[in-house]
Design a protein around this nucleic acid. Structure first.
Lengths: 105, 105
DNA sequence: ACAAGAAGTCAAAAAAATATGACTACCCAC
DNA sequence: GTGGGTAGTCATATTTTTTTGACTTCTTGT
């Protein structure tokens, strides 16, 4: 890795990066929860009892960088941060469904 | 993690296992090549110049165990082993296409 | 008989992904 | 001004994945 790009010089398969990202720990679970409601860091930690700060923080960051989640600072009453699924993130839904279906065969 | 099963007690998302499998190193590339022609171990090693025996052997085994590839001993002239995509493996094609498309956004 | 190709296996090392626990910094309530 | 909630970061372990290099077994060619 003399170069420092996100994957190898030319990624053999364009889906590889995304696949790797989605397969990372907690990603699928975070995605599922994001489907239900906006996510908040500490709440997420409580919802995923075996997860740890660092991993959740990293997962959120990666999902945000991949533009699957959008991070918003809510400047209201309790003043907090929310992560919600982006449009792009929503297009993953049918892909997950396909994978689930295939996994059940 | 007192228990020792392959994933966590109940896998939070049914797609997780498959996702992890497919995201493993060399998997996508092997899949692509399998789309073109039956695979042979040593040929694969030559086609993936940076890959190593062990990893390829493991990848083939996992893909076979997931029933995405079928392993066949060809009892003809040169006597060798071939790995070909199963029906189930073929159903991954549109999933990969979706992922590629999403990755290109 | 000997070499070379096919398809691996094995133990150990290196690299990458995850986890742990301590620590920040900001805001609010009491 | 102490305690608790928010959202993290950092350095360091531990665990998991991937690589390395040596070795194996069977078959074929010369």
């Amino acid at each position: 890795m003399t170069t420092h790009n996100q994957e190898n010089s030319q990624e053999a398969c364009p889906a590889e990066g995304l696949l790797k990202l989605l397969a990372g720990k907690w990603k699928a679970q975070i995605f599922r929860l994001a489907l239900e409601h906006p996510l908040r860091f500490n709440a997420l930690l409580r919802q995923l009892p075996d997860a740890n700060k660092q991993s959740i923080a990293l997962a959120l960051k990666e999902l945000e960088e991949a533009e699957l989640l959008v991070k918003t600072t809510i400047k209201q009453k309790p003043l907090h941060i929310e992560y919600v699924l982006s449009e792009k993130g929503l297009t993953l839904v049918p892909i997950f469904r396909n994978l689930e279906q295939l996994a059940s065969i």
